[in-house]
Amino acid sequence: MFKIGDFSRLGQVSVRMLRHYDDLGLLKPSHVDQWTDYRYYTIEQLPRLNRILALKDLGLSLEKIAELLQHDLPLEPLQDLLRSKQTELHQQMQEAQARLDRLSARLYQLELEGQTSVYDVIVKSVPACHIASARHIVPVASDMPKCRGILIEQLYRWLSQHKITPVGCEIVLYHISEYAEADIDMEFAIAIPEPTKPIADTGQTSIIVRQLAAAQVASVFHDGMVRDVTQAIAALFSWIGTNGYISSGAIREIHLFGPETKRVKDQTVVLELQIPIVARQRASFDPLQPVDKMR
């Protein structure tokens, strides 16, 4: 028999780990001296130790290994467990590759722009919600404040008439694929409870109730003047192109500062900008690919 230290050197496992295996019931000493509590192992226990190490190397937890060894390593449960671990590792590899792509894209963007962006973009999932909205084509950018005011008034009057209390922030949707100075398709909306019955028409046919679809979005927060929002949108489009995505829906401007009717002119605000995205079909980030930039 071998003392624990000798068995440790033979099996290339630390004494501390052998004691841990003993506590878990994975590998009990062949003999424990009742007077000194010294642990002794036999040469025949080395195959079991190697089996533990082999399963551990595959990424299985010690608890799972103990469960398998307790039932003499049955074939089907072992196969199921290894397939599950294989799927888990593939997922981890994909996540790690995506993170590596984002790091590469961020470095490339820094080199391209020569400075640190004030906007940090993240990808997140947003759930679907019901909205009431009013939509209008804004002739030119300078008409935006006037058109927004008209849509806001129509929307809140409609909500009041139908006794509907909003359940979320105001949302401005820009149905455009790139920056535009004219013919801007804008929709002013607000989240409402899901209707339990059809809402009677009061003659204001410009107000519609619909579901805003769930989406994976690129998101950024803007803290500043409303007139500078275009800078945040430009940063979003630049990030989307650099990171291997394409836009797949209307730009969403989420008013975190409260109702626009209470906003003071030239007051700084905090709002969130979201653009729904889907992955471009390419394996990984390629710095030689052209960068989609909003001009």
Rank of each mutant, 00 (worst) to 15 (best):
I4Y: 04
S8W: 04
S8G: 08
L10Y: 09
L10S: 09
Q12P: 05
V13R: 09
S14G: 13
R16C: 06
L27A: 02
S30I: 00
S30M: 06
W35T: 12
D37G: 02
R39W: 06
Y40G: 00
Y40S: 02
Y41E: 04
Q45D: 11
Q45N: 10
P47C: 12
P47E: 14
N50Y: 15
S61H: 04
E63P: 01
K64A: 13
I65S: 02
E67C: 00
L69Q: 10
Q70V: 03
H71Q: 10
Q79D: 13
R83D: 14
L89A: 11
L89Q: 15
Q97L: 10
R102K: 06
L107W: 08
V123D: 02
P127L: 02
I131E: 00
A132N: 01
S133M: 07
H136P: 00
V140P: 01
M144Y: 14
M144F: 14
C147F: 08
I150F: 13
I150E: 15
L151K: 01
I152C: 10
I152S: 11
Q154W: 13
W158P: 01
S160R: 11
S160Y: 00
I164S: 03
I164V: 15
I164K: 07
V167I: 14
C169G: 08
C169A: 15
V172F: 05
L173G: 03
Y174G: 09
A180S: 13
I184L: 12
D185Q: 03
T196H: 13
P198L: 12
P198G: 11
P198V: 15
A200W: 11
T202Q: 05
Q204Y: 13
S206C: 14
I207P: 00
I208L: 13
V209R: 00
V209S: 05
V209F: 04
R210H: 15
A214F: 03
Q216L: 05
V217Q: 02
D223I: 12
V226C: 07
L236D: 07
N243Y: 08
S248C: 13
P259Y: 11
R263Y: 02
V270P: 01
E272N: 06
I277D: 00
V278G: 05
R280F: 07
P287L: 04
L288Y: 14
